[in-house]
């Protein structure tokens, strides 16, 4: 077993952030590279939150995957209109940096992306926009109504949060095309594996994915608890 706590500034964030990595062992056998589960946490969580709540070391050992847990703070894992470029960091800068220095595979078939809560939404958008990032995705407890529901007007504080991430015009066609989960789902393609569990309107998202010919998905109305997430990942890896 090995557990790594990383603190550093990686492009394009260029801002000190944390990443927690659980590995089955310090080194893979025979000079091979680890398969990787990228695990995105919920809003406001630091990188070690999931490793405190869950036995990610055991998960790593049982699945033979390095479990990489970056933090996304309050970003929705998006390139923020008023903030940092989290989407580019998660999909580009961070994987590039870590693969350069640690024995982590970059092959699509060796990479998996799961997320919980805000991380579920982040994983979903990455699957839709950049399906080549991973072989399978898991979206747990995501708020798929983030841009289409009335929630954004639920309080001045929440509206402020939304404008910080997405800009002032939350109804703009450009934004909805780029970030609304329903529109993204309607255009989904080339996703070999997708787990959708829990979250608002997840059934509707699953229905949209079902209309695509080349998206293989599993839908469960329940399962947004972190424990369930890991159980489903283990089941998938078996």
């Amino acid at each position: 077993m090995a557990m790594i706590q990383f603190r550093g500034s990686v492009p394009p964030l260029n801002n000190a952030k944390r990443v927690t990595i659980a590995m089955p062992d310090l080194l893979p056998a025979d000079g091979r590279l680890w398969r990787v589960l990228w695990l995105l946490g919920d809003e406001g969580e630091m990188s070690d939150a999931l490793s405190r709540k869950l036995d990610t070391e055991a998960l790593s050992r049982r699945t033979g995957c390095a479990v990489v847990m970056p933090e996304g703070l309050h970003s929705d894992y998006e390139n923020m209109q008023r903030g940092l470029r989290w989407y580019d960091y998660i999909t580009g800068g961070l994987p590039r940096y870590l693969r350069d220095i640690l024995p982590l595979s970059s092959a699509r078939e060796d990479n998996f992306l799961f997320g919980i809560g805000m991380g579920g939404l982040g994983a979903f958008r990455i699957a839709m926009r950049d399906p080549g990032f991973a072989a399978a995705y898991g979206c747990f407890g995501a708020d798929f109504d983030v841009l289409s529901g009335d929630e954004k007007h639920s309080s001045p504080e929440y509206l402020h949060r939304m404008r910080t991430i997405y800009g002032d015009d939350l109804e703009s066609e450009e934004l909805l095309e780029r970030a609304d989960p329903y529109r993204l789902a309607a255009a989904a393609s080339d996703i070999p594996g997708m787990l959708i569990a829990g979250g608002s309107s997840a059934g509707k998202i699953a229905e949209l994915l079902g209309r695509s010919g080349d998206v293989s998905y599993v839908y469960s109305p329940d399962g947004s608890s972190p424990v369930t997430v890991l159980g489903m990942f283990e089941k998938m890896m078996r």
């Binding site: 077993m1 090995a2 557990m3 790594i4 706590q5 990383f6 603190r7 550093g8 062992d25 310090l26």
Partner: peptide, 29 residues
Amino acid sequence: MSFFKVQFRSDVLSGEGEFGVFLPRNAQP
């Protein structure tokens, strides 16, 4: 510098060991 704290199961200690790795930002590997 970028900082990694590594904790791992050590063969020689029959238990956990740790080390820190600090990587420079101004040089190429």
